[in-house]
Amino acid sequence: MKLDPFCAEQGGSGEPCAPSFLEILCDRGFRWLTFAAGGIVISLGLYIIFEIGSAAVPAMKDNGLGFFVSTTWDVARNEFGILAEIWGTLYSSLLALLLGGFFGVSIAIFFTQGYLNHRVAQVFRSIIQLLAAIPSVVYGLWGIYVVIPALRPVASWLNEHFGFIPFFGTKLSGPGLAPAVIVLAIMILPTVAAISQDAFKQIPYKVKEAAYGMGTTRREAIMLVMLPTAANGIMGALVLGFGRALGETMALAMLIGNANQISLSLFSPAKTLASLLASNFPEAGAVEVSALMYAAVALLIITVGVNALGAFIMSRSKRQEAI
């Protein structure tokens, strides 16, 4: 049946009409509502920065920029510095990125370059996504009772035989950098793998066909053609994974050992900005809270900067695909 909106017999009004007063009112009201929601989101974002920043002001006045180059954290003497935490944050995240990035990109290649049946690859992809869904505390618990005991004999062997290398300079007495890095790498692996897979999938099929047509082996096609073509997207994936590693809190607070020191050794305890916040905040007095807020500002600046860089690289790689 052909419906005529103006036909009275078919339930229409009988003649074309402008929206009624009520409809216009609803329209204005709803429009206003969505803009109000937008306004709330914007003000929330600004208020978060303002609130953390203003709470940090007393510590900024007391410690100045020396905060970033000092390693003391002494509540009694009111002296605070976060150099060790910045070092721990960057060092642990970088190591996790090396490990998680290598595995993530390799797995992305494995899933997208025809090593697996399409359906099997889909199943494995869902499994990797489940890895991402496991909460941070659960990884922390697993790290304490599985990774640390498994790592201890390896660490003491490496320390005995290769102790002269600074990376193996100390014994693993319990929590430390190495277990934290391993767990952190597992946590960023799904991010890196998912975004790199997208980068590989965006490559037009003819590029791959052209490479195989030249008589390359699969390894040559991947290493010489696919990887360089997807390089931008993979770079973005790595930067975003790095951003995730920087802000990760609970697993690190449980595994890294919370020692205020700068050391190259993989087996010595360390501390990150996020784990400093998690471990010191609950029992902090007013002065220390302000110093912790200052540390939160530093963490905010680092993570937002890294994420913005990642988003920029991703948008550039998308534009390149479009050309």
């Binding site: 978060i48 953390i52 975003l240 951003g243 995730r244 920087l246 802000g247 990760e248 809190t249 996020a274 916040l277 998690a278 905040f281 912790l292 807020m293 939160a296 963490l299 905010l300 993570t303 937002v304 994420n307």
Partner: peptide, 9 residues
């Protein structure tokens, strides 16, 4: 991309 601990802070 916000670290979750900052939401708590």
């Amino acid at each position: 991309g916000f670290p979750s601990i900052l939401a708590g802070v």
